[in-house]
Computed example of a mutant assay.
Amino acid sequence: MTEQFAALAAIAQNPGKIRNEVLADFCSQLSHDFLVVSKWFALQARLDITGNADNAHKLLSHPAFDM
């Protein structure tokens, strides 16, 4: 899982369709693990890409998000 998450982090730096598909796939595969999903949210929230503030705000309404 460490290698998979590292690859996800690298892909997440490049906005686009593939990035969105990979992020969604990762979440759906590991949605049963609360800690992994928390890391998935944290990864996306800290990305330094254009428009990420809007993306982070949208994550607040994601079904898996739990404050």
Rank of each mutant, 00 (worst) to 15 (best):
C27D: 05
A53S: 03
Q13A: 10
L59G: 11
F65I: 06
A53E: 04
E21W: 13
G16I: 03
V36G: 02
I11F: 00
A12F: 03
P15R: 07
H32L: 11
K58Q: 07
W40E: 00
F26R: 03
L35Y: 10
A12M: 04
H57T: 12
G16T: 04
N55G: 00
L30C: 06
F34H: 14
H32W: 14
A53V: 13
A45I: 09
D54G: 05
A53W: 06
R46M: 01
N20T: 07
A12K: 07
A12R: 05
S28D: 11
K58F: 04
G16K: 09
I49N: 03
L23T: 14
D54F: 07
K58R: 08
A64K: 13
M1C: 08
L59W: 11
D25I: 01
H57D: 08
L35H: 13
Q4D: 05
V22P: 03
S28A: 07
V36R: 09
H62G: 10
N14I: 15
I18V: 10
G51E: 03
H32Y: 14
H62W: 09
L35R: 12
R19E: 09
N14D: 15
R46I: 07
D66K: 15
M1D: 11
G51K: 03
S38E: 12
M67F: 09
H62Y: 08
L59N: 07
L8W: 13
M67T: 14
L47E: 06
A42V: 14
S61Y: 02
A6F: 13
A10Y: 09
T2V: 07
R46S: 01
F65E: 01
L30F: 12
A7R: 11
F65R: 04
D54L: 06
H57Y: 09
G16D: 00
R46F: 02
S38W: 07
A53T: 12
L59Q: 11
N20W: 06
F5E: 01
D48N: 14
F41H: 04
V36A: 03
K17H: 10
A9C: 15
R46Q: 04
A42I: 13
I11R: 05
D33Y: 10
K39L: 03
Q13H: 02
T2G: 08
Q44R: 03
L8S: 14
E21A: 15
Q4F: 02
V36C: 02
T2L: 07
A12N: 04
N52C: 03
S28T: 13
P63Q: 01
T50C: 00
V37C: 05
D66A: 15
L35N: 15
H32D: 15
A42L: 06
L30M: 05
S28F: 06
S28R: 14
A7M: 01
K17R: 14
R19D: 06
F34L: 09
E3T: 11
G16M: 02
D48A: 08
